[in-house]
Design a binder for these strands. Structure first.
Lengths: 224, 224
DNA sequence: ATCTGTATCCTCGTATACGAGTATCCAGAA
DNA sequence: TTCTGGATACTCGTATACGAGGATACAGAT
């Protein structure tokens, strides 16, 4: 739950946060697979810093649910089995559904246009690595007027936690076109200001993504 | 979000966690008011440890939303204004409503009896400091069968974050008796396995608590 | 051959030390 | 008297150092 309550007050960028950002991206991108052990010494040497900022970064990522830490046993990239993926998507459906319902009445035209622009960007983007980020940007744009900072923070945190799995989804060209189609349906419904219908479309969208993942992903987490 | 995914695998209790626990309780209890600066040196000396575990503890509490940390400026007990309290309770209503709805069909008799027992404990408990814990135990007992560990983790985290304000509520004898009455209504509805009615009672219960707090608590957060 | 006990190694948790940034306070000038 | 400039003190972030606990591998005994 990173920077949950506080909006965007400028804080000096500490080394620990930079390390955390790089690790988060590496995990989301897939170059650090689930279960990969994260040795403090190794990371410190690779990054060129000491172990202390690395420790802080790992703690931060643990709080986000991306890595697991066991005292004396070390840290590793968090594993997620199909059951946990279902849990995350259930929570996402709950949180995002409510956020969308609250947001639609206050959603300005510029935000709707921004969401539409992001959709076009997704279609035009050849780089697989950016789809996850763009996908998140689209969703958050629609929720941005919900008026509850904390709710938005939770949603963003869950996007981060599930990012690497969503990217697996999006790397499937078949799913991607279907997802885009659902995205456009959702945007259209939002433009009509029909909150309940939009929530239905959204929940269906999430539900389908979850099923696709859970079906294909039983072997994703690696062995224990 | 402490120990969110992982249930109860035994981990060695580190000094940092002990410090975090003590600080969390001190904040919830009220002896550390909102806005109180938390100097690493002071805390290290008071606890008899070095600054490192204190740093870890503060990071952990920051992740829980209980303290705020600014690099080079230090940490202080997180402030909450009326708006943020409303946000927290809105999220709680959403999360706990869903958890209750999912839980009721699978709720065993022993859990219902446990919840009832906790209610009697609250009536009999003279120590103000335990009401917050008991209150949380009652609610979590009702949600325990929801089947979503992550959802339960989020709920517990938000209880922790709001604990000190809930305790202010509960220290008001008037509110406390009304709250207990609502608790018993809720339990009765749960025993009848009427999920929708129970969710209505719960949301109303939370809404009343929020209003009482927000009305009385505009000046709670202290000055910025 | 297998099982057990022991010794080594490896990793983390904690302590201490150092450097950098910021806020504060006092002195001097307008 | 007030404002500005600089110096000092304070706090955090980071680096290095040390001790403890667990896992593993090897040797010996059954």
């Amino acid at each position: 739950m990173r920077g949950l309550g506080e909006g965007l007050m400028q804080k000096p960028l500490t080394v620990a946060e930079q390390v955390a950002n790089v690790l988060r991206e590496s995990i989301a991108e897939g170059s650090l697979a689930a279960g990969t052990p994260l040795r403090q010494d190794d990371l410190a040497e690779r990054f060129g810093f000491s172990r202390m900022p690395v420790r802080d970064a790992l703690r931060q990522l643990e709080a986000e649910g991306i890595v697991s830490i066991h005292p004396t046993k070390g840290a590793h990239v968090a594993r997620m089995d199909a059951a946990e993926i279902r849990e995350i998507f259930a929570v996402r459906a709950l949180l995002e559904g409510e956020a969308l319902r609250l947001s639609i009445p206050n959603l300005g035209k510029e935000k709707l246009d921004e969401a539409g622009y992001v959709l076009n960007q997704i279609d035009a983007e050849p780089n697989v690595g950016r789809w996850g980020t763009l996908n998140r940007a689209f969703h958050l744009a629609l929720y941005s007027a919900c008026g509850n900072t904390r709710l938005l923070g939770l949603i963003e945190a869950h996007h981060n936690a599930a990012d690497r799995y969503v990217r697996i989804l999006l790397s499937n060209l078949n799913y991607r076109s279907r997802s885009q189609s659902e995205h456009r349906d959702l945007l259209t419904t939002c433009r009509h200001r029909d909150a309940e219908a939009a929530v239905r479309v959204l929940k269906r969208h999430l539900s389908e993504g979850m099923e696709t993942l859970a079906r294909a992903g039983d072997g994703l987490a690696g062995k224990s």
